[in-house]
């Protein structure tokens, strides 16, 4: 077991492992270890929890830079004190780390309206498979300087580098937030969700729950639509009226969103890769992790 406390440690560790062709398993908070495909059983775990904490937060900029192992809960608490939040809010809950969310590009219920991880990450610090410390991107909200290693790392499942630091885009808390549950016929869930998202007053989250999940969340035995309306008071009032016109809506507790995120979810099927794209992927991996030691096999 490895426990680096600085990027210098991490560099030495990765270089050493590369020299030994020793596979490594990156671990921050350990909540995602069953995600992805199985990693080589001989892999040595590398605990990255030392890369944790708020590094830079200027609320007026609506950006934050945190250690990658910082939990989502801590991110939420620190930003909430300034009436801000990060819409990453991934499936799986807030016990996991920011770094793992970015590495796995895990979205959450707000992704459709407020952005996927790739839309919210501004910059990174990471150590690649050759032991180099790299700092692509930055901490400003708009940046096209250089080739986009940030996007490449987002969703790379730790196979191209160990992320140590993440800069993120934040949003101000909306003035008014309401959560509603609407009983729906599951067969039409897709249409109802699409209709709501395309209404004049779209919700910032809108998830269809099957009957089993609805029971788990204490919403009764019928399929439900869980909807979050956010904006200024007049907007939310109009959105609420629109929602009521579509079905019997019942006010629900905001905490349901966390419970929904924490509920187990079926894995999303990934599209097959064309041979050309497969070849590019292999070249990327060979380029940034030539010894194939970082989370080998996890992307299938």
């Amino acid at each position: 077991m490895h426990h680096p406390t600085s990027t210098a440690d991490l560099t030495a560790l990765i270089r050493d492992a590369a020299a030994r062709a020793q596979p490594l398993r990156l671990v921050a908070r350990g909540t995602w270890l069953n995600g992805g495909a199985p990693v080589s059983t001989t892999a040595e775990p590398v605990h990255l929890d030392a890369f944790s904490g708020i590094i830079e937060y200027e609320p007026g900029d609506l950006t934050i830079t945190v250690g990658a192992a910082t939990t989502l809960a801590e991110l939420e608490a620190v930003t909430a004190a300034h009436h801000q939040w990060c819409p990453l809010a991934p499936w799986g809950g807030d016990a996991g780390s920011v770094g793992a969310t970015v590495a796995t590009a895990t979205a959450g219920p707000f992704a459709h309206a407020l952005g996927l991880p790739r839309d919210l990450v501004l910059g990174l610090e990471y150590v690649d498979g050759t032991g180099k410390v790299l700092r692509p991107g930055g901490k400003v909200v708009k940046n096209v300087a250089g080739f986009d290693l940030t996007r490449l790392l987002t969703g790379s499942w730790g196979t191209l580098g160990a992320i140590t630091r993440v800069s993120l885009r934040l949003r101000a808390h909306p003035a008014t937030v309401e959560t509603w549950a609407v009983a729906i016929d599951e067969a039409h869930a897709g249409d109802i969700v699409r209709g709501l998202r395309r209404s004049a007053t779209p919700p910032d989250a809108c998830e269809a729950l099957d009957a089993t999940l609805a029971v788990q969340l204490g919403l009764g035995a019928q399929s439900q639509l869980l909807v979050r309306l956010a904006g200024n008071a007049a907007f939310v009032a109009a959105a609420r009226a629109d929602l009521h016109s579509r079905g019997a809506a019942v006010a629900a507790d905001a905490s349901l969103w966390m419970r929904l995120r924490e509920a187990p979810r079926a894995a999303v099927a990934r599209a097959a890769m064309s041979p050309g794209v497969r070849a590019l992927n292999d070249r990327v991996k060979r380029t940034f992790d030539p010894a194939n030691i970082l989370n080998p096999g996890i992307m299938g």
């Binding site: 986009d148 064309s274 794209v277 590019l280």
Partner: peptide, 22 residues
């Protein structure tokens, strides 16, 4: 060589690295 990056047909998550993003 010709490659299709991203998910133009909206069939699901694009597999592999975010090469379109790059």
């Amino acid at each position: 060589e010709v490659v299709t990056l991203g998910d133009p047909h909206g069939t699901g998550d694009a597999a592999g690295y975010d090469l379109l993003g790059a």
